[in-house]
Simulated scan of single mutants.
Amino acid sequence: MNTNEGKAAIFDLDGTLLDSMDVWHQVDVDFFRSRNIPLTDDYMGIVNAMRPEEVARYTIKRYGLHDTPEELAKLWDLMVLEAYGNTVEAKPHAVEYLDYLKSSGARLAVATSLSPQVREVGMKHVGIRQYFDEVVSVEDTNAKSKHSPEVYLTAASRLGVAAKNCMVFEDLLVAVKAAKSAGMHVWAMEDDYSLGDRPAIKAMADGVISDFADAPKVL
């Protein structure tokens, strides 16, 4: 496959295209309350960049739970499915921006840690699924995490576009670092759950936005 021509944009979902991070926090609040476990301030910061199975294993180990990682991940999936299918909204002007890029001829992909069921429900709910040529999960890579650039490189390969011609949109510092290490241009979406990392994100990203109305019109 020739990957030297064309332009592409690769998007994270949670906290980037979807204004969804509050959903995960509420799931944590409800889950921890149901187990009578105190939810400490550092927990969200530690698990933010993990995929669900990693979060489950970490939570089980940290709090001495008797669930299996698969059981816990399935429980959380069920808790978030309703929210993603009914209450999650797109980030400001995300739909309009995707429509613009698609009409310009750019190739578009999602790079996410969300489970297939949750991501499909969320994208369909906010009306963006039809814009994407490829949807890539960290599960499709050997790294299985956004600490590695593999998910972005896999997305670029599937799109048939060279890494240097890809623009990545992310909200987490570890993800911004990973995409930059792949030789891609990276724009960061400001999200309240990345507030503590905002100075480092601004220093590393090619640009920072809080609204897709301000996203680059040329990739």
Rank of each mutant, 00 (worst) to 15 (best):
Y58Q: 07
S145Q: 08
Y63W: 08
V121H: 07
L108T: 03
D99C: 06
A179I: 07
V23W: 00
E82V: 01
V55Q: 09
P199S: 14
D140L: 13
L78T: 03
T154R: 14
T112F: 09
K180F: 08
M204S: 15
R119M: 14
M123F: 01
Y131W: 12
K7C: 15
H147F: 15
L108E: 08
K144E: 13
A179M: 10
E70D: 11
V80N: 07
R129A: 15
N36W: 01
R107L: 12
K164Y: 08
R35G: 06
R107T: 10
H147T: 13
A175W: 01
T112V: 06
D171M: 09
D28P: 02
T40C: 08
D99L: 05
T68F: 04
L39T: 02
L108V: 05
Y63F: 13
K146W: 04
R129E: 15
T112C: 12
V88A: 03
E150F: 11
G45D: 11
K164L: 10
H147N: 10
L101P: 06
R62A: 10
T87C: 06
A109W: 07
T59K: 12
L114D: 04
V151F: 12
L13P: 08
E120T: 13
N48D: 11
T154V: 15
A9P: 03
S20N: 00
D140K: 07
S145V: 09
V118M: 07
V126N: 07
L17E: 08
L18H: 04
H93P: 02
W187D: 00
Q117V: 14
L98T: 01
L13G: 03
V88C: 05
V138M: 09
P38A: 02
E96I: 00
G196F: 11
S145I: 09
D30E: 15
K180D: 04
I128T: 09
D99T: 03
Y63N: 08
V80M: 13
Y43L: 14
Y97I: 00
A155S: 11
G122Y: 05
E82L: 06
C166T: 07
